[in-house]
Amino acid sequence: MEKRPYFVLGDLVSSCVTGGLTAWVVYHSIPSKGSMILAMAAGMAVGMIMGMLLMFVFMPFFGAMEVMLPVMLAGKLSGMVVGMGLAMHGWSEWSSGLIGVLCGLVAFVWTLLAHYRVQGVTGHDGYQNPG
């Protein structure tokens, strides 16, 4: 991933904003009492759509579609977790939003850790260092 602050902060902020906004939309679109599994699936679907929409907002500033993976992950994760939380615990709007932002942070760190496992010059298959 990037070391330049503009892009590191951009990736972090875009993931957290996606997580937070997804949580807000899920809070207002999914009933707070119902099946946990259905709420989780519906939340994930909402998260996917939010991720895809917000990706187009962030792309011109931080990079093309292929680097929007943390944004997509943040949307899905936030949608699933907040949907589940609403069904199980009836989370408030603020709690949902906060959890959504945390999901964005998790998506960012997840991507960062996965990236550092395969970063740098690698061998002919792109996964192992030569020698």
Binding site: M1, E66, V67, L69, T111, A114, H115, V118, Q119, G120, V121, T122, G123, H124, D125, G126, Y127, P130
Partner: peptide
């Protein structure tokens, strides 16, 4: 293939 450098995950 002689060399592969990963710039973003194993994607770019």
């Amino acid at each position: 293939i002689q060399r592969v450098e990963n710039h973003f995950l194993d994607v770019v």
